[in-house]
Amino acid sequence: MTAAPQITLLVPCYNAARFLPRLMESVRGLTRPFDAILCYDDGSRDDTVAVARSLGLEIITGQPNAGVAHARNQLAAAARTEWIHFHDADDLICSSFLERLAPACDAQHDVVSCDADWVDEIARNLMVPWRYDPAALASTPLPHLLRNSMGLNNSIIRRSAWTAVGGCDESLQMWEDADVHIRLARNGARFHHVSEVLTISLRHADSFSHDHRRSWGCRVDALERYALAPGAGDIAPALVHESEHAASALALLGDRPTAERALALCRRLGARPPTTRNPLLKLLKPFVPAYSLLRLQATRRRRSA
């Protein structure tokens, strides 16, 4: 009989004192428990360390605050099991998470993932349903993950595969978790996906991710790097799609310089943005700057939505 995989829960913490008890309540409700739990305090200014210890958690302390990518890398380096799962302190985990995912943590796979819901913390209404195609992740994960970002809350990762790609890119303040999945796919990691919502991300007003301008800027940084990597021509359609998506979002946010960078990336990849079926916009494309057309298109779409 094959031994059950050993899996460590890794929790990066920054000012997480009010969230840790809630997370641990959901963790203790798991039908299959983690084999170990490890937290990293990234220079918190509240009682995170004291709260973690009161909950019986092992916690590493770091100073000064260096960002969540650094915290995750420190956690992965300290983990003592071959399989690791990162979970944000302010989110929830469903009771059957490990029961459903752990069986696929075997010699045939390097990343085992699930679907996720982003839910408003106060109203508890669904904001974003993150869904993935198991067949695409098994056969062609790289283009699928470029178009469908995956957070680390969603996955269990073989620690040796994590180490092979260098873990999180600490230069990215956001999108670092989506980026590491993309680099895992590019490095040949083998994915297995379970099409069930097994993790819940709670969105709240003071969340770091609400800085949309910075978030999309980090996304453009990552896309520019992917376009320079070997084999980028094979994923050019996905890179163009995501670059134009980023440019559209940045145009609505009024960040013209970063939007222009995304549009320039589209052109370097052989596209002529913006992509449109609107006859009027098609007519205007030779005469009106791409940024102006994209902003008009994005504004029209937002109003119609």
Results as ranks from 00 to 15, higher is better:
residue 81 T to H: 09
residue 52 A to W: 12
residue 268 R to F: 01
residue 203 R to G: 09
residue 25 E to D: 08
residue 259 A to S: 13
residue 117 D to F: 10
residue 289 P to Y: 02
residue 270 G to M: 04
residue 22 R to A: 10
residue 181 H to R: 09
residue 208 F to K: 08
residue 40 Y to I: 12
residue 43 G to P: 04
residue 48 T to H: 11
residue 35 D to V: 04
residue 138 A to F: 07
residue 253 L to M: 08
residue 224 E to N: 05
residue 201 S to Q: 11
residue 206 D to I: 08
residue 21 P to F: 02
residue 186 R to L: 11
residue 293 L to V: 11
residue 19 F to Y: 15
residue 269 L to N: 12
residue 95 S to N: 14
residue 72 R to M: 15
residue 118 W to R: 14
residue 242 E to M: 07
residue 182 I to F: 01
residue 80 R to A: 08
residue 245 H to C: 07
residue 206 D to C: 05
residue 157 I to E: 02
residue 110 D to R: 03
residue 250 L to G: 04
residue 289 P to N: 05
residue 267 R to M: 12
residue 43 G to W: 04
residue 20 L to E: 06
residue 191 F to C: 07
residue 248 S to M: 11
residue 53 R to D: 11
residue 208 F to L: 08
residue 121 E to W: 09
residue 65 N to V: 02
residue 290 A to N: 02
residue 85 H to Q: 14
residue 268 R to C: 07
residue 114 C to N: 08
residue 131 R to V: 15
residue 124 R to P: 11
residue 111 V to M: 02
residue 229 A to E: 08
residue 41 D to T: 00
residue 189 A to S: 06
residue 79 A to F: 03
residue 23 L to R: 08
residue 86 F to K: 07
residue 228 L to F: 02
residue 185 A to C: 08
residue 124 R to W: 10
residue 236 A to R: 09
residue 33 P to K: 03
residue 41 D to F: 00
residue 128 V to A: 12
residue 57 L to V: 13
residue 71 A to E: 06
residue 113 S to V: 10
residue 129 P to Y: 04
residue 289 P to V: 07
residue 211 D to M: 03
residue 93 I to D: 07
residue 268 R to S: 13
residue 288 V to H: 01
residue 192 H to N: 04
residue 241 H to N: 01
residue 109 H to S: 04
residue 282 K to A: 08
residue 220 V to I: 14
residue 87 H to N: 15
residue 47 D to V: 01
residue 4 A to S: 13
residue 61 T to P: 11
residue 300 R to N: 01
residue 90 D to I: 05
residue 304 S to G: 03
residue 97 F to C: 10
residue 12 P to D: 10
residue 225 R to N: 10
residue 44 S to E: 11
residue 131 R to K: 14
residue 114 C to V: 10
residue 252 L to T: 01
residue 157 I to M: 12
residue 237 P to M: 01
residue 28 R to P: 00
residue 160 S to E: 11
residue 95 S to I: 01
residue 135 A to K: 11
residue 169 D to C: 14
residue 79 A to L: 07
residue 208 F to T: 13
residue 6 Q to R: 15
residue 290 A to L: 06
residue 54 S to M: 13
residue 71 A to M: 12
residue 168 C to W: 01
residue 232 A to T: 00
